[in-house]
Design a binder for these strands. Structure first.
Lengths: 197, 197
DNA sequence: CCATCATGTCTACGAGTGTAGACAATGCAG
DNA sequence: CTGCATTGTCTACACTCGTAGACATGATGG
């Protein structure tokens, strides 16, 4: 769809936005190393060099993509109560299969092989979702537990969305949500006996 | 170390083994796309073409690497009892930092961006560790829960070993093991109330 | 000893990579 | 209408990639 593109009236901010959008799609689908600058440029209807003139380099473009992809607060719920159940439901529910392919977790997993990309994503995580998730938790070791929750979510995206493991892809959504919520509850709820130490 | 290599006496099986070993190292460190055939060959002391003559192609070489890397039963414990605690301990304990860089989870995470590699790894998982872990579990949805456990382990490897999230890398190992074991227990133990439905 | 097959290397190709520098076209100010 | 800065393109470079075919070298059977 949208194979031919009319030249688009000259507009710097609109062009920048178009490049950034196609970059989000390309990096999320193919990863940092798998997506080419020419590919990103073509999908935006421009030339490869214009991408570098707007963003400096592929690496800086990726940094902006990561920032945009991790920024929206939709990733994690808002209310502290019942965080586990809400995450579990949102994780197994495949409502919009199109927007699903733009998940920041897919972006992270498919770009993890590149060390530079990993460093960029680490910064973005501790800047955005890390602190936001930590604030939702009570008790001890909130940062540690928040990152464990992120680890579990990432792992589900890996096994279910990328490796496409048989039992997870063809699983009964209700049961899957249940098991997942159980594991998340163990991480989000205040420890059963915080008495120790 | 071992910069210069004496030509090695001609031995087909020994050469094949040397190539396979260096391929495991290269693919685990850089991922399927990040590791080059010339790089694997050089580390084994041979030429790039010899790799293709022994394994057919880079893809088939990767398939053998995945098979070897996922085969050892060390990945998961042996006794059904206390699976959660044993996995958690083995996951946070960094005993041998050299052998740690050969983890099949690192291989999987860093090769996940390539769809062909993902398909190869899916086959290897359902052939090796999937069934083995499933047999350790009791109750309902064992396959589903086994893959969720794999997801959590993968996610911890991602966040702790690749992204190097601050709170997980500098975490108190004891507390981390505790939280992790809690989440794993929620997945490995038979549901608290299997009465529902 | 020497012929012969297995083992290993060399050269090369076609395609793709990120990006630097020079050039062209557009749209707005005067 | 005309100058001119902004916006965009073209060509090119120096690599790296996987792999195909022809060639060289080693060890071993007779």
């Amino acid at each position: 769809m949208m194979v031919t593109q009319q030249p688009r009236r000259r507009d710097a901010t609109a062009t920048r936005e178009a490049i950034l959008n196609s970059a989000v799609e390309a990096f999320t689908r193919a990863g940092y190393d798998g997506a080419g600058v020419r590919e990103v440029a073509a999908a935006a209807g421009v030339t490869a060099m214009l991408v570098n003139r707007y963003f400096g380099s592929k690496e800086q473009l990726f940094a902006e993509v990561v920032d945009r992809s991790f920024a929206p607060p939709t990733i994690v719920g808002s209310q502290p109560a019942a965080v586990a159940a809400r995450i579990a439901e949102a994780l197994v529910a495949r409502t919009d299969p199109a927007a699903e392919q733009l998940s920041p977790f897919l972006l992270m997993l498919r770009s993890a092989s590149n060390p530079r990309a990993a460093a960029i994503m680490r910064d973005a995580i501790s800047r955005h979702v890390g602190t936001r998730l930590t604030d939702l938790l009570d008790g001890a070791d909130t940062e540690q537990r928040a990152e464990l929750i992120l680890a579990l979510i990432s792992g589900v995206w890996l096994m279910r969305g990328i490796i496409a493991t048989p039992a997870l892809t063809s699983a009964d959504p209700a049961r899957l949500t249940e098991h997942l919520a159980g594991a998340l509850r163990a991480l989000s709820d205040t420890g059963p006996t915080p008495a120790s130490s």
